[in-house]
Design a binder for these strands. Structure first.
Lengths: 201, 201
DNA sequence: GTCTATACTTAGATAGAC
DNA sequence: GTCTATCTAAGTATAGAC
């Protein structure tokens, strides 16, 4: 919603498609459905997007762009690791998006996760967004805290795998009929964080 | 499979459909594709299954039937809880299927998980198979072990939520291009089980 | 039981008027 | 930029011959 202003037709098509794809699946939603919901015709959709597949790829591009912009500064976090509690440090790893795009970002992740099994590009997208990129932050941070003796030594990779699989599960249940509740999510995080033991130093 | 003998046409249709649906998604696979892969015509598929939707429902029925048959005996496990290590006891919660249907069962779970967001019956199926039923075993077992003083008191519900979300994530990645490795899975389980602390009693 | 042939519907996509 | 009209391909499903 950067380039076009939030009220443009293009944006309406985009966000409506995100909503429908994430609710019913990419192949289960037609261009006709999207155009009807937006209140335009099929031809207009094709004026803005080359194909249905293009629409999907634009979603992933949108996500990647915003994700990269929201990437926390690793050097700032490494500094935090010297003084703050492990809990505080790891909270800094969260990506924060502008409220108006938060749901869009959530939903694009869902679409990727749903399509990941059948579509190679979706699989790559999900792998990058949920497994690869987060570990680029958590790996050096956890290692640094161990090095500083601020937490007890632990298997960094295992913790990361645990965390990313939980995020994956939570992402898929997001905005669904059986969403993961904040209580459930915090409960799980509490357990995971209890595996990271501060030394008191 | 049970009623028809493993080499019947009906079974071939069924298992081929399971494989294709789980690889590419229900809506992304046509009856034509299934019949072609089996080496029969579309009409023959409709001779055995009333509709494409019926095919999906039969998969869930198949899963439920085999799941119920493989349900571990809770009384036997409660007995184990008195003498065995927590680790051994919780291992007993695993459902074991005959090798020839193991992959089928895995894949049906994947189909349910993929369709759960857009289809109500799939959502119910997944909720039952992955969240509800396993907790019917783990809840009494963990409570019993706490009661006996064999493990330190813990929040049973949180552990269960953690476990079921991990299973959900692992199930979806199963048989995919980026499957969860046995090493990753065991690593996660090791961490989760480390949250359950034997008292030594 | 399995086939051929076909009905019917909907999908993605485009040409060309305005 | 947005529309109407239309093309082509593919989907689910069925009737009826063998």
């Amino acid at each position: 919603m950067d380039k076009f202003g939030i009220h443009s037709i293009r944006d309406k098509i985009f966000s409506t498609a995100v909503q429908l794809f994430s609710d019913y699946g990419f192949y289960n939603v037609s261009i006709r459905q999207i155009s009807k919901k937006v209140g335009i015709t099929v031809a207009t959709v094709y004026y803005y997007f080359a194909s249905k597949d293009d629409l999907l790829q634009e979603m992933y591009s949108f996500y990647r762009e915003n994700m990269n912009n929201a990437m926390p500064d690793i050097n700032r976090l490494l500094k935090l690791a010297e003084t703050e509690s492990p809990f505080e440090v790891l909270r800094g790893v969260d990506f924060h998006y502008a409220p108006e795009i938060q749901e869009l970002m959530d939903r694009i992740l869902i679409i990727g996760a749903m399509e990941a099994r059948g579509d190679r590009r979706s699989a790559i997208f999900i792998y990058e967004a949920m497994f690869e990129l987060p570990s680029k932050l958590t790996t050096p941070l956890l290692n640094r805290m161990i090095e500083l003796g601020r937490i007890e030594p632990l298997d960094v990779k295992k913790i990361e795998i645990l965390l990313s699989n939980l995020s994956f599960s939570a992402a898929l249940r997001n905005h669904s009929t059986a969403p993961i509740s904040m209580e459930e999510w915090l409960g799980m995080m509490e357990l995971v964080f209890s595996l990271i033991k501060p030394t008191g130093k």
